[in-house]
């Protein structure tokens, strides 16, 4: 116990925050471009599945497949919301359900015996999650792509008046968003569990979205949010590992079932506290 426990908690926080931060960067990209993206959850699961399946052949194939699949499903979400004018929540929900069902079915068909892979080092993902927020801040603030992305996210009609077609920045943003989130999923299957299980995203996409709001749509803020929520995932795990017990008012508060709720309860509390103070990109709330 003592210092060892603390170190374990810090390390665990970082690694729990890694997939959240990666997915949250996807959320920032999509939402700053004015496209609500609850499909992050599905994209994570997609990345986890594809990374594992192709990772069985070779790690390189796995990573390539994750990027391609993320981009394709991002493109699908962009197409549904931009071209087919579908409500982004409906499109995102549809994609989430589709991916959850399809991966569950395919996992049963393709590897019923529950294979394992050597996969990749978690440190690789951790480094990416540490660098990406800064890269994103630079891209959004200092590049032409970033400026156009923010412009179409704030007011697509004004952007059009300035001679920009909102289509390209939005497609790009949502595709990149898909890539980020599926890399987050690849972390879960290739670097953390070394296997794939159904629904292994377990709400991390939604928590990542909460981190985006918590961070006021700023990449660094969202990464901070990911750390914050990652801490409670880690705390919950550490409490369970150490078999800490707390009985109060006749409730076993340290029951694994209740502890599992901790990150989500904290998500709710954190969001309640930022409501009214966070200003989303203007076009997010204008979707008809």
């Amino acid at each position: 116990m003592g210092n060892g426990w603390l170190m374990a908690l810090v390390t665990s926080t970082l690694f729990n925050a890694t997939p959240l931060a990666l997915a949250a960067m996807g959320g920032v990209l999509s939402e700053r471009a004015g496209v609500v993206n609850i499909a992050l959850e599905g994209f994570i699961l997609l990345g986890a599945f594809v990374g594992f399946y192709f990772g069985l052949h070779s790690v390189f194939m796995g990573v390539l497949a994750v990027v391609v699949a993320g981009a394709l499903f991002g493109l699908l979400h962009a197409f549904f919301t931009q071209k087919a004018r579908m409500n982004p929540v409906v499109s995102g929900l549809g994609l989430n359900l589709l991916i959850a069902g399809a991966t569950r079915y395919l996992a049963l068909r393709l590897f019923p015996q529950g294979d394992h892979i050597a996969g990749l080092s978690p440190n690789l993902f951790l480094s990416l999650a540490a660098v990406l927020p800064f890269l994103l801040v630079f891209t959004l603030q200092q590049t032409k792509f970033g400026l156009r992305l923010r412009a179409v996210g704030e007011n697509p009609e004004s952007a059009r008046m300035a001679g920009i077609s909102p289509i390209l920045p939005r497609y790009m943003a949502v595709m990149l968003s898909g890539i980020c989130a599926s890399i987050a999923g690849a972390y879960l299957s290739m670097a953390d569990a070394h296997t794939f299980t159904s629904d292994m995203s377990a709400g991390k996409g939604y928590v990542a979205l909460a981190a985006v709001i918590f961070g006021k749509w700023n990449p660094l803020g969202a990464a901070g949010g990911a750390l914050f929520f990652g801490f409670f995932y880690a705390l919950q795990t550490q409490l369970q590992i150490n078999q800490y017990h707390l009985n109060w008012l006749g409730v076993e508060w340290t029951s694994p079932f209740l502890l599992d709720c901790l990150p989500y309860v904290m998500t709710l509390l954190a969001l309640v506290s930022v409501i009214g103070r966070a200003t989303p990109p203007a076009a997010l709330s204008q979707e008809e």
Binding site: Q142, T143, K144, F145, L147, R148, R150, A151, E154, N155, E157, S158, A159, R160, M161, A162, G163, I164, P281, A282
Partner: peptide
């Protein structure tokens, strides 16, 4: 100069003026 869709409020004056006519260097950096 339009009546409704004028400048984008959340962007700076500079960003508004450059938007759509951005001078860029390597890698699309402004």
């Amino acid at each position: 100069v339009s009546q409704h869709y004028a400048l984008i409020p959340a962007l700076t004056v500079l960003e508004n003026v450059l938007l759509g006519a951005e001078p860029t260097g390597f890698g699309g950096v402004l």
